[in-house]
Design a protein around this nucleic acid. Structure first.
Length: 428
DNA sequence: AATCCACAGGAAGCCCGGGAAC
DNA sequence: GTTCCCGGGCTTCCTGTGGATT
């Protein structure tokens, strides 16, 4: 996500500013000889699982209590875990599963755990194929009938006596993409197994997602529910302190840095992931400035950088059609159009398509693309009714216009858009 | 109260590419 | 090579709707 700008370029600019032009050798020398700020940057990554998870004791206990029967060969209840992003759901689940496996190993109880992120593995087929692969079956990523994959998984799992715990992270993604049949199958699989037993841990940040499920799945999946509360600023501070000790050289952090990172992340619904990113990027910013100490200013800069980078990256990776659509909104915004509606956007969009000679999509499809951009937080759309003048969506740009305009124009196929003016359409 | 606008958004189905099996 | 299956992007067709206007 956050890709640091090349060190080289920035340093050169700075040197010119400082009117130090002797030689590049000096840059390299200083790079090599300056005191490092980081001791182990990995400790600030999301993927890092520390040995202790502060302020999640209750959740850990709850989860451990539910899963403990696996150690006696009994089948633990299925569990649903709810909580906003960065509240430790994933890390706690992985942490517990690791402990469970290790304890099982110690006492000779076979327990295997599988972690699947349903944002990537978002269909029935993919979930089953991944599970089957985990148990040694060779399933192609497409091609087989789903029943066959299911059978392959069942057979592989049932080869020996074992307790299997499947973690389905972002399980709500599965439902929104019609992969909920797999949940139905998985929750009933135990009745078809001879030796193995399967339990599911579903992780979701959407409290209401079960309402979209079949009632039978609802009740069997949600046998136990655990809710992860967001961290408050004080708790985030503790987490950051713990990681900072591992990540930074002693004495490089100004005393206000951690509280500020914690406070900024607490504003974002207590997101620990954001707090860690903030701390890491602050360090990187300071490093690039050749600073010896990381200060509040670096944190502020890091915060801006993270927000900008997120948006730019989101826009850069959009499909071409969405970029053209976004460009239509940008042009309308630049024109100061008061009510930007689906219809207006569609007309501008069509002329843009003509200008860059690509096929235009139907208004129905564009309506869906607008919703997607809304979900990404790039646009904001609200359905409004203008009485006699119809019901439509009022759409606003949610991100800095200049930044994203540049990003869209960078697309090779859309270069010529920069020359386009709205007078070419009869609108507005 | 009836009408009517400008869409929202659901449902069904088409088409295509990727891949396995025959 | 042909057939079958899956997922994703898309179109077509359709019904529904909030509130200004008639």
């Amino acid at each position: 996500m956050v890709c640091p700008e090349p060190l080289f370029q920035v340093d050169v600019e700075e040197l010119v500013d400082m009117e130090v032009r002797n030689s590049f050798a000096r840059i390299f020398e200083s790079f090599l000889h300056r005191q490092p700020l980081f001791k182990n940057k990995e400790a600030l990554r999301h993927s890092y699982t520390p040995d202790e998870l502060p302020h999640r004791e209750e959740e850990i206990n709850a989860l451990a209590t539910i899963l403990a029967p696996a150690l006696k060969g009994e089948t633990p209840s299925n569990i649903l875990i709810y909580g906003k992003s960065g509240t430790g759901k994933t890390i706690v689940s992985k942490f517990i599963c690791r402990g469970l496996r290790e304890t099982g190993k110690k006492y000779g109880v076979p327990i295997s755990t599988v972690y699947l992120n349903c944002e990537v593995t978002d269909t029935q087929y993919r979930v089953l194929a991944n599970l089957a692969k985990h148990f040694g079956e060779n399933v192609p990523f497409t091609g087989w009938p789903t029943d066959k994959v299911y059978a392959a998984f069942k057979e592989a799992v049932d080869e020996r006596r074992q307790n299997v715990i499947i973690i389905l992270d972002e399980i709500d993604r599965l439902v929104s993409k019609g992969g909920d049949r797999v949940l139905y199958n998985l929750t009933r699989i135990n009745s078809e197994l001879q030796r193995a037993r399967v339990s599911i841990i579903g992780i979701s940040n959407n409290l209401k997602f079960t309402s979209y499920l079949d009632t039978r799945v609802q009740s069997s999946l949600g046998e136990e529910e655990i809710i992860f509360k967001p961290y408050n600023a004080k708790q985030l501070e503790d987490i950051l302190k713990q990681r900072a000790e591992l990540a930074f050289e002693p004495g490089v952090l100004d005393e206000y840095v951690i509280p500020l990172c914690a406070a900024l992340a607490a504003r974002e619904h207590g997101d620990a992931r954001r707090a860690l990113d903030l701390l890491r990027v602050s360090g990187e910013v300071a490093e690039r400035e050749n600073a010896e100490i990381i200060t509040e200013i670096h944190v502020r800069k890091a915060n801006e950088k993270i927000e900008r980078d997120n948006v730019v990256e989101a826009v850069r990776t959009l499909p071409t059609q969405s970029k053209v659509l976004l460009y239509a909104v940008i042009l309308l915004e630049e024109r100061g159009t008061k009510f930007i509606t689906t219809g207006k956007i569609y007309q501008v969009y069509k002329s843009l398509c003509r200008a860059v000679s690509i096929d235009s999509l139907t208004q129905r499809r564009i309506s869906d693309l607008i919703s997607e951009l809304d979900m990404l937080g790039i646009l904001n759309s609200t359905v409004i009714s203008k009485g006699r003048y119809g019901r439509t969506r009022e759409i606003k740009l949610e991100v800095p216009l200049k930044d994203i305009k540049r990003v869209v124009e960078e697309d090779i196929r859309l270069r010529s858009l920069s020359k386009f003016t709205l007078t070419q359409t009869r609108l507005i």
